[in-house]
Computed example of a mutant assay.
Amino acid sequence: MTASSLPLKGKNILVPRSKGQAQSFSELVEKYGGSPVEIPLLAFRPAKSPELHAMINQLHAYDWIIFTSSITVETFLSFLHHSNREHMPKIAAIGKKTESYLLTKGFQVDFTPKEFVAEGFVEEFKPYVKKGMKVLIPKGNLARNYIAAQLSNYGAVIDEAIIYETFFPEDSRELIKDKLANSQLDILTFTSPSTIDHLMAVVEENNLYEKVEACIIGCIGPVTKERIESYGLKVDVAPDVYTVHHMIKSTIDYLENEYRRAL
C-alpha cells in the first residue's frame, strides 16, 4: 500500500472498545495507516435477572425476540440452556454485526432492518406487528425503551429484561486522562451515547475540554451525535450508514477535504 493510500498516517485514533471487541476496528485503522489507541470507554457484565429465567422457560410463548446488539445476543445465550434453543421464537436483529453473530451461533434471523437504529427498526417492523403478539426484548441497563413503547402502541405485548450492565472500567479513566492531557489523540470515535458520557466525565473532572475540542470527532448514529452535541462539541464525522467501516471511510473523506481546503 503506497503512502498516498494511507490517509490516516500519523493519526492517533481512539478505539473505544475492549481488547476482545477492538480487533476489527483497530485493523481497519491500521489498514489506512493510522495508529489505534484502544481504550474501552464501556464494558459489560451480566446482570442479575431472575425474571429472565422465567421468560426463557416460556420462550415458546413468544412470537418474536428482538436483539439490538451482539453483546445482547452473547449475554442472552449465556443464560440459555441448550434445551431452550429449539423453542426460540422468530428473531429480529438490529445491525449486520448482530445478525452475523446470531448466524454464527446457528440461529435463523427472520428480520433485519435497513436502518440500524431503533426508530428505523420500528418503522420497518411495523407490518409484522399483530395485536396481542408477544415480544421479548433483552437489553442493557442503559438502553432506551423506544422500541418497547412504540410496539406497545401498535398492540404488541412486550416483555423487557435487563440482562447486562454497562460500566466504565477504572483503568480507562487514567488512560483517557493521560492521552488527552498530553495531546496524544487526534481523532475521537464514539459508538454510543455511553461512550461520550464516560469520556466527558473524565474531561470535566480534569478540565480537559479544550483538548477534546482540538480533536476530530466522529460517531455512529443520530442518538450518539445528539449526545456529543449536548456537551457543546462539534461532530465532524457522522456517516449515513451506522457502522465502524463507514465512520472510518467518512473520517478519511473529512481529512481529504480539509487538506484540499488548506491548499
Rank of each mutant, 00 (worst) to 15 (best):
D236K: 08
D186K: 00
Q184M: 05
L80F: 03
H82Y: 10
E213S: 13
R260L: 14
L102N: 04
T2C: 13
E123A: 13
N207H: 14
F25W: 15
S194R: 03
V202G: 07
K130V: 09
Y254V: 07
K179N: 12
I65E: 02
D178C: 10
S26P: 09
G106T: 03
V244P: 02
I252G: 01
F111A: 01
E74S: 09
D63L: 01
L151I: 01
K105T: 06
H198F: 10
E229F: 04
E27R: 13
M1L: 13
G155V: 02
H60N: 13
Y254I: 09
E226N: 14
V223S: 07
Q108I: 10
T195N: 07
A214D: 08
V129M: 02
C215S: 06
I176D: 03
T191I: 05
M55G: 09
Y32W: 15
H53P: 05
D197Y: 04
V244L: 05
V15E: 04
E115W: 10
G34E: 04
K211A: 10
L188M: 09
D253C: 07
A93W: 06
T251E: 00
E210F: 02
D159N: 15
V223G: 04
G95Q: 05
L103N: 13
Y32S: 06
H81G: 11
A181D: 11
S230I: 07
S192P: 09
P127R: 02
F107K: 10
Q58I: 08
I216R: 01
V244G: 05
Y254A: 05
